[in-house]
Amino acid sequence: MLAVEKVSRIFQGGKAGFKNVNLSLEKGEVVGVLGTSGCGKSTLLRVLSGLDENFEGEIKTEANDPNQAFGMMFQEPRLMPWLNVWENIVFGTGKKDKKQEAFELMKTVGLEGFENHYPKDLSGGMAQRAAIARSLLIRPEILLLDEPFSALDAFTKMQLQDLLLDIFEKHQTTTLLVTHDIDEALYLCDRVIIMRGQPGRIESQITVEAKRPRKRGDSYLAELKQDVLKELDFTKE
């Protein structure tokens, strides 16, 4: 689905960005990228999404229409403040025939009845739901999520993680999730990639064997978390 070969993007004189990243995603796979801040994981998403074009290496996708290859959801909702929820969700499609689909999506993310609200009247969680719906409406081949829930409170975060699980189930969206929340990565992803260093490199990979939906307090996930922490050098002997 997605093949990233020897991609590097370095700035600030080699002190930031990432170097020599190889990565491949199967169709329908959910892959998490974990790393401490400054390891270039957000930059990786910006490069993949086409927002940052100054990179070296090769990015291949199987998408027929390159315009629809990537959908991106940011850390902040980034809704247009002058459009109401409905207009924000259909923002960027331009086509009228998506109406039914947009309506379905709005139901999925639980925003039914809020069509006419402006972003200023939404809570952080609701705004992020609208952003999820917006990024899914164009039916991207690969959904890129850049720390999508890091600004939300713990409970809203869990709700939206479950919403994402529903969406993965329903749409089989290939997803690359950048996060610094280990629990989130282990709860959602098939595979977790760990990045370290400045500039960042892929340090290791952990496959999460458990089937979704998983239990949040699962002892298997707790063990994996220990492994991840070790990889990231956070465990004390």
């Binding site: 940011f74 960027g92 164009i138």
Partner: peptide, 12 residues
């Protein structure tokens, strides 16, 4: 800039 990036994601 963040809003403009949204537009770029849609290849406006």
């Amino acid at each position: 800039r963040k809003l403009i990036e949204v537009g770029r994601m849609y290849h406006f």
